[in-house]
Amino acid sequence: MPTTPALRTLAADEIRTGGDHLFWTADPSETLSESLRRTGQTAPVLVRDTGDGPELVAGRARLLALRALGRPVLVLMVDAPADLDAGLLYLADNAARPLDDAMRLAALRFFAPLLDRAALAADILPRLGVRPGSKDARLLDAWLDLPEPWPGHLAEGRVPLAAGEVLARLAPADREAAAPLFASLGWSRSNGVNLLTWLFEAGKMTGKPLADLLAESGMADVPALGLSPKDAMARLVALARQTRYPALSALQAEFEETARELSAGTAWRVVQPNNFETGGAELTIQVKTPAQLARAVDDLDAMAAKPGWEKLWNMGGRRD
């Protein structure tokens, strides 16, 4: 949209700062305030005339800092009658800002009611550094319809952008049931996605609401256990996996227990190599010296004499 190159000076209080097009509002940094105090305003803020007085289109941090300094504001009057124009000008004025996922989502949520999905992808995504059709584009699209508290969790880094698709597939009641798990924990990409995916899939398979799965698995109680965030998340992930793969988890636990008994006191590692698709076990050890090798052989000899191998090898077979 063309701008009317009209530079003016206005009192800071004259300018309204409330429009939704200011979708990345942040308070002025100290550096900005200090620079404005020392050097003065080198770039005008953008303002439109709504017929109801001047309204800020871009430059909120500068405006707030100048207001705090009691200084007048240099403004460029722009022609942006529609909110779409104002949003695009705001984007252009902020083009140099480093963006994170939550900022991209905030921008898209502003533009979404003003454009159809195709135009949103074609016109807005590239301005946000996202290639239309890319994985990030798909994820942001999934996030568009997610209600609070999820965008808030994303902004706070508690849920990863990658969880968008699975969150979008959850029924609203299930999403609500999952929300407390994200209220205070900051989930990494893989843990966050795994947790939600396993819960979603377990819900599908069992036909149970997610709230029931959380209660039955003990996941609902974890936040109250007073664990460190890291331990709480590890516990939740383990329980979610167990809920998703109950038979496999039980087999693995049984295998690990037997393997531990067999290899106790040695450096041998005993693992099941293929999710119980065949019987058997894989034994590995790392040796660096002849002495270690001799010890490994002795240990293996002693291990071989222990009972428990038959049981270990046959795990995953028929459960009579």
Binding site: E201, A202, K204, M205, R244, Y245, P246, A247, L248, L251, N274, N275, F276, E277, T278, G316, G317, R318, R319
Partner: peptide
């Protein structure tokens, strides 16, 4: 969404005991 694991041929297969 049942308990599928990667089989020896790389395909997803139902866990052997099932």
């Amino acid at each position: 969404y049942n308990e599928f694991v990667p089989g020896l041929d790389g395909k997803a297969r139902l866990l052997r005991p099932l």
